[in-house]
């Protein structure tokens, strides 16, 4: 029996130290030195430039945040409570035939239509279903185009300029086919702010009043 105890404890201790302390610490050091932006959560400022400080960060490129006003593009619904809780990720876990799912989709439709009453266009399914993480940072290009009339009216900009903005923001999947085409909502909204600022006379700028 003694012949078991010594190798058992020694090997557990040494391999534990190697894989549980040295390995993650070494990768942390490497990540912090070589890829500080990515390793620290891909945070960006209000102007869209990379940052690592909590004070200047407006969010993460990779994490959805709540946009609910008519003047911004909206992300997909989030099933976390409260929505877009990046401290407790998760999906709805509603089955495909669960009446609660059908109700949830209906209320997402109602919310979109209430914000833009005249619009009778088809709503892309990703805009009324919640994502797996509740933090999906992306919407489909179709879901962005769908929101153009509402955002254009709220921001007093032409739909054509918004459509151009969307076209420039479409990201292709890796290698062109591994996944779907997507648009990062936070980045799109930062570009939207920039576009609106450019179109305005400096004296009207609300942030300078």
């Amino acid at each position: 029996m003694r012949s078991i105890i010594r190798p058992c404890l020694t090997i557990f201790l040494l391999l534990g130290l190697l894989t549980g302390i040295i390995y993650p610490m070494a990768i942390t050091a490497l990540g912090q030195v070589i890829f500080p932006f990515q390793a620290n959560g891909s945070l960006i400022s209000r102007s869209g430039s990379p940052t690592q400080s909590q004070k200047t960060a407006a969010g993460s490129v990779l994490i959805a945040q709540n946009f609910s006003g008519p003047g911004y593009f909206w992300p997909r619904p989030s099933a976390t409570s409260p929505p877009y809780d990046a401290d407790n990720s998760g999906g709805s876990n509603l089955g495909p035939r669960n009446p609660a799912l059908v109700k949830k989709v209906a209320s997402a439709i109602a919310r979109l239509q209430k914000a833009d009453p005249g619009d009778k266009a088809r709503i892309p399914v990703d805009l009324v279903t919640s994502s797996g993480s509740g933090l999906d940072p992306d919407i489909s290009p179709a879901a962005a185009y769908y929101q153009v009339p509402r955002v254009a009216r709220a921001r007093h900009v032409s739909p054509a300029s918004l459509r151009r903005l969307i076209r420039q923001s479409i990201e292709m999947p890796w290698l062109g086919f591994f996944g779907e085409r997507y648009i990062d909502v936070l980045e799109l909204n930062i570009r939207l702010n920039r576009l609106c600022r450019k179109l305005q006379k400096p004296s009207d700028h609300p942030l300078r009043k």
């Binding site: 960060a57 969010g59 945040q65 006003g69 007093h156 702010n193 609106c196 609300p206």
Partner: peptide, 15 residues
């Protein structure tokens, strides 16, 4: 980390 979200202050565009 805690961030101050983009829509947490007024935006350009009047609405």
């Amino acid at each position: 980390v805690t961030v101050h979200t983009l829509s947490s202050s007024a935006v350009a565009g009047g609405a």
